[in-house]
C-alpha cells in the first residue's frame, strides 16, 4: 500500500503548482495582496472548522510559545505574495524550481546549524552536489 502513499505525496506537490497557477490569475483581477489575503482568510475559516472537529492539540499554547514560533504566518504571506507576482511573469515551472532551490538550500543550512529547534545534520558532499545541480537546472531554462 506504500505506493498509494507516494502517490498522495505526489498529488500534494501537484496541488502546490495548481494553487500557484490559479492565484497568479486571481491576482490579475482582484489584486496580488488581495489574492494572498483571500487565501489566508478562507484558509483560516476552513482550518478553524477542522480544529473544532479534529483538533487534538491545544490552541492556548499560542500564548505560552516563544514569540519566534508565531512567525510562520508572516513568512507564509511573503512566500505566497511573491509567487502571485512571479508566476504571471515567468510561469509556474521556473517559479517552482526557484522556490525549491531556496527551500532545499535553506533546510540544509537550518539542519547544519541546528536552527529553529531542528536536529543537527552537517552538510555533506552529496547535499552540495544536489544544490549545484539544481542551480544549473535553473540557469538552463532561465
Amino acid at each position: 500500500m506504500k505506493i498509494w502513499t507516494y502517490l498522495l505525496a505526489l498529488l500534494a506537490g501537484v496541488s502546490l503548482s495548481v494553487e500557484g497557477a490559479i492565484y497568479g490569475e486571481l491576482g490579475k483581477t482582484i489584486g496580488k495582496l488581495e489574492s494572498s489575503f483571500y487565501n489566508f482568510f478562507v484558509g483560516a475559516i476552513i482550518l478553524g472548522i477542522v480544529v473544532l472537529f479534529l483538533g487534538k492539540g491545544s490552541l492556548s499554547y499560542t500564548f505560552q510559545a516563544p514569540k519566534w514560533e508565531l512567525s510562520g504566518g508572516a513568512l507564509g504571506t511573503i512566500y505566497l505574495t511573491i509567487l502571485i507576482i512571479a508566476i504571471p511573469i515567468v510561469g509556474v515551472g521556473i517559479a517552482m524550481i526557484s522556490v525549491i532551490i531556496g527551500q532545499i538550500a535553506m533546510s540544509i543550512l537550518i539542519e547544519h546549524k541546528g536552527w529553529l529547534g531542528s536536529s543537527k545534520a552537517s552538510v555533506n558532499k552529496e547535499k552540495l552536489i544536489a544544490v549545484s545541480l539544481m542551480t544549473i537546472s535553473l540557469l538552463l531554462i532561465f
Binding site: 513568512l75 511573469i89 522556490v99 536552527w115
Partner: peptide
Amino acid sequence: ILLGSVIGGVLLSAQSSI
C-alpha cells in the same frame, strides 16, 4: 523575480521548521 522566488523558498523552509 527569480531571486525573489528563491527567497520565497528560503522563507517557506524556515516556516516549516518554525
